[in-house]
Amino acid sequence: MSLLDYFRTSKASSASLAKERLQILVAYERSSDKQPSYLPELQKELLAVIQKYVNVNKDAMTINLEQNDNRETLELNIVLPDAHPV
C-alpha cells in the first residue's frame, strides 16, 4: 500500500463509519417499531418472576417477538448464572 492509499482509506472511513452506524440503528429502530407496546412491561414482569427463583442479571435476558406470515414467535433468552439456587 502506497502512502497515497493510506490517506485515501483513512479519509474514506468517516462516511463509511456513518453508514455502518446508521444501518445498525435504523434496522434496530424499524424492528422495535413493529413490536407491541406491552413487550417491555412483559419483559420486566417475567424477569421479576425468574429472579424470585434464580439470581439472574437483568441484562442476561432478551425478549423478541417475530412475526411471519401466519406465525408469531415469542423468543425468550435467559443466561443463567453458574450457581443456580439463590
Partner: peptide
C-alpha cells in the same frame, strides 16, 4: 466531500 469520503454518498443514503 463524498469523493473524499467525508460525506455519505447518494448510494449510501439509498442503501438505507
Amino acid at each position: 466531500r463524498v469523493k473524499s469520503g467525508e460525506m455519505l454518498s447518494l448510494e449510501d443514503v439509498q442503501d438505507i
